[in-house]
Amino acid sequence: MSGWSRHNGTAVALDLESVDTDQLIPARFMSTPRSEGYGGFLLHDLRFGSDGEALADFPLNNTPEASVLVTRRNFGSGSSREAAVYALVDFGIRAVIAPSFGDIFASNAVNNGLLPARADTATVDSLIGYLAGGPAKAHVDLDRGMAEIGGVRVRFDLDAVWREKLINGWDDIDLTEQHRPAISDYRNWRAESQPWAFPAERAAGSSTDAQPSK
């Protein structure tokens, strides 16, 4: 994943509270391999009617170039499905600005280069009011923790760890590999001092009549 620190794009408002991950991508699409692209699934049942026709008044349908989403509290609540983030990213969204996010969604977002920017409710209210008139140019600056949308300046909160990850596009597995020795020391300590923390061998290996293994 490549990092980024500044983004210029187009902002749209999604004037809804608690857009959960079941809205972001309905479960029935989740058996699709990622290589097929998830952008078409984004907010599917809100964007498309039951016959599959795109609903003309839905913000993302008339602004396919949208890359910054401004929305209300509790965005991405619900399940841990990272597919919700894939749908946003594959659609072209780089940043979501909202008063609050589901915790798991926010970590998933950062792991995929998507910024979950937390702004105060009053600012979001005024942004959504402004964007009611239509999409606007957006500029997002991770270093400064600032966004500018149609001339309105927005300060957002972002955890320092997450900022670094987004900017550097870090892969955690690579980072963690450097700590191999510490991890194996820990494992030895745990096995030594808390052997009960490892599953009983009889269950992991062999089977009994009462509990046949497959």
Partner: peptide, 20 residues
């Protein structure tokens, strides 16, 4: 605690997880 797919891959590869 529940984790997303990138974190699942991390746990599979390292048996550890980064968390604040």
């Amino acid at each position: 605690f529940g984790i997303g797919a990138t974190e699942v891959a991390h746990v599979l590869a390292t048996q550890t997880i980064w968390q604040k």
